[in-house]
Design a protein around this nucleic acid. Structure first.
Lengths: 155, 155
DNA sequence: TGGGTACATATGGGATACCATGGGAAATCA
DNA sequence: TGATTTCCCATGGTATCCCATATGTACCCA
């Protein structure tokens, strides 16, 4: 019901593992997905993660294209070929893969950010910067002024 | 449940064998297909591979043509005559055939790419190039802009 | 209200299982 | 019978499982 909310920062151990925040684990458990579904965010240096709800959202995008067509293949490679399915161990931890490390710049700490139907995996400092920027944009939008695009697409 | 997701690169041994990634093997086992179904991709230098789910998708496409018609025969030759059924040995390996080598340019390494209902077999460097391109096309397609065909026609 | 106990979570580390890979030997084919 | 394929086993590295500990928090009882 609640979805992923709030954010948490945890330490990466020597084996490259990190605890997924307990509240997020609870959401995942209710969602019923085996493990975790992870895909690079196309517009910021974070990785989107979630379960069936996120997967359904992603699958919806490719439904309009005919399978075996060049368009569908390209889309499927971008969506599924470039994503990962990390397992979650008995203690609620996941391992941060090469792909995630490369795309996020994570070294020894990980910030988990809830976005309701999914959550994001960030390098803590990069998240702080992005978050500050997002605040400004949100304020500008709410005050009715013209948005300040600055970077990519909206979240 | 998950289908073929993510991508993996494995080494080809002296006998021309390569390990099929364990997660893909698990999907194939669930699918129940004996061995592997392989067919050249019509629009890129990769080979499509999978089990019953892929086969069903291909058959669906040929249903649009009347059996015994020249069109159907031509299609049947293209789809089934040009395909192969490599076995999977006890250790989860397949041998890369002459056909696959020719069509993909594979020499000593193989990249397996999950596309949900099937996976593709690529020469690693070619995959990197194609994937970067696919990423751009996907963004264009999903943002509702005109797609960038760049290459060929649909199957 | 204060003290203490039980539980949950994050984290560390040893042991084990899995997996990709290499290579020998038997079997198959032409 | 020579070449190729299939089966089987060995090995090293990695990921997974399992248990231990610390820190905190909620709860309970006097």
């Amino acid at each position: 019901m609640a979805g992923f909310v709030s954010h948490f920062t945890n330490r990466l151990d020597a084996k490259g593992r990190v605890s997924i925040p307990a509240p997020f684990r609870a959401v995942l458990a209710r969602d019923g997905f085996e493990g975790l579904y992870c895909i690079k965010s196309s517009h910021c240096s974070a990785v989107d993660a979630g379960g069936n709800e996120l997967l359904a959202e992603i699958e919806k995008r490719s439904e309009n294209f005919i399978k075996l067509s060049p368009d569908h293949d390209a889309l499927a490679i971008a969506l599924f070929g470039e994503s990962e399915n990390p397992k979650i161990d008995g203690d609620g931890r996941m391992t941060i893969s090469e792909m995630i490390r490369d795309h996020t710049g994570i070294t020894d700490q990980v910030t988990f950010v809830g976005l309701k139907y999914k959550f994001q995996i960030w390098e803590p400092e990069k998240f702080r910067e992005y978050s500050a920027e997002a605040q400004k944009r949100a304020l500008a939008m709410l005050s009715g002024q013209a948005p300040a695009p600055s970077q990519g697409e909206p979240v």
